[in-house]
Amino acid sequence: MRVFNVTILSVLATVLIGAGLLLGLPGDFSERALWLTVFIPVIWTAFMFYCYWDKKVWRVTTALIGICLIGIGIVLTTPTPV
């Protein structure tokens, strides 16, 4: 399960929370986009690391799925910038 978390869920969580942050964070849009571009590898690394940090696998899975859902929620509820 940890291997699934580290190879699949961590990527999904990075992409989805990245999209959520791009829409949800305050400030100039292109600035946000650039900062997110810089931090995406860091976020991904942090998620991969977290997969092996926590003793309970179910907690890691739940946390990553939760992060994915938060990202999806923000994308669906925030209007696309014009």
Binding site: V15, A19, L22, L23, A33, L36, T37, P41, W44, V75
Partner: peptide, 16 residues
């Protein structure tokens, strides 16, 4: 950054 930016950033933006 220079590597994954080519795929992850467009995917992130595409979803957004």
């Amino acid at each position: 950054f220079l590597g994954v930016v080519t795929i992850l950033s467009p995917v992130v933006a595409l979803i957004a």
